[in-house]
């Protein structure tokens, strides 16, 4: 049973980690809390469902959903985020914008697809691997594999590549980075494409694992937000750790407590981190804090 619970934690945690990564990447570069990110990710699942239901090949459907979500992301940036960025909107305005956008996207899903639950059927058999009285399906294995590989990819691209250096400079001091010749809008666009892609992967995997509901995004956003806080909002690979840790906490809590407390545990963890370690597990003190 313990082994099964650990596997379960990796599945749940893997999904949280993926969404949390996109979430904190957006937060760090765009400097606002993207509360619409969960609903945005769920869109990809719905698009795959749509392409599936008009009998497009499954693989083509996935690629198209990726593309559609990237386009949607760029449109949101072009018509909304960019305008607010140009006007140098304050953080409260951006917070409201993120919430409003999330509600808007959810209601858009509700209007287009209706309130009923949609399930994505797979064209291939979802093989179940059994070992030591535990089980793991192919899709779940993919969830774990993708999220772990994104952990590695982001770590190396952010900390070992030149491009990562540019992003980090933009995160720590956007004005200075711009003065030194970083094309901010260009980097923003690339990050948006990357985060849309992560959202698409996360949304599709979520849709396959848990079925689609228009309101599923809110829950996903909350979990991503919590994961990002646990890992440290400003430390990108941390959010992935945070996601996995949240998955573990949730699943292991079920062993000892009634499962209805699961969401409660999530929030207790969130509060504890906000009080005692607001910069997360891996959060470093900033220079001002050290000197002061």
């Amino acid at each position: 049973m313990i082994l099964q619970v650990i596997i379960n934690s990796f599945i749940t945690g893997g999904l949280y980690a993926l969404i949390a990564l996109g979430f904190s990447l957006l937060y760090n570069t765009f400097k606002f809390i993207p509360f619409f990110y969960g609903a945005f990710a769920i869109f990809a699942g719905y698009f795959l469902y749509l392409f599936n239901s008009i009998n497009l090949p499954f693989s083509l459907g996935i690629i198209l959903s990726f593309l559609v979500l990237i386009i949607l992301g760029l449109l949101i940036d072009f018509f909304l985020l960019r305008k607010f960025r140009e006007r140098k909107a304050g953080s409260v305005i951006m917070l409201i914008l993120g919430l409003a956008l999330g509600i808007f996207l959810e209601n858009l899903l509700l209007a287009i697809f209706g309130p009923n639950i949609k399930s994505i059927s797979l064209p291939f058999e979802n093989i179940t691997f059994n070992f030591f009285n535990s089980s793991l399906t192919l899709i779940q294995l993919i969830v774990i594999f993708i999220s772990l590989s994104f952990l590695v990819i982001t770590f190396f691209s952010i900390y070992k590549s030149r491009y990562g250096l540019v992003i980090r400079s933009l995160i720590s001091n956007p004005l200075m980075a711009e003065i030194l010749g970083v094309n901010k809008e260009d980097i923003f666009r690339k990050i948006l494409i990357f985060t849309s892609l992560i959202a698409a992967i996360g949304g599709i995997l979520y849709g396959i694992e848990y079925n689609l509901e228009p309101t599923a995004g809110t829950n996903l956003t909350i979990k991503a937000f919590t994961s990002a806080i646990i890992g440290g909002l400003e430390f990108l690979p941390g959010s992935i750790f945070g996601g996995f840790l949240l998955g573990f906490i949730e699943n292991i809590s079920v062993l000892f407590l009634p499962s209805a407390f699961k969401d409660g545990i999530t929030f207790i963890i969130l509060f504890l981190f906000l009080i005692f370690k607001p910069k997360g597990m891996f959060g470093k003190k900033t220079r001002e804090e050290m000197s002061g």
Binding site: P258, S259, K262
Partner: peptide, 19 residues
């Protein structure tokens, strides 16, 4: 045991039931 209406992750509860 009860679960919340929004919950969609029952794997660990099911493991517990299985035991």
């Amino acid at each position: 045991e009860g679960v919340t209406q929004e919950d969609k992750d029952f794997r660990s509860v099911i493991s517990k039931i299985k035991a």
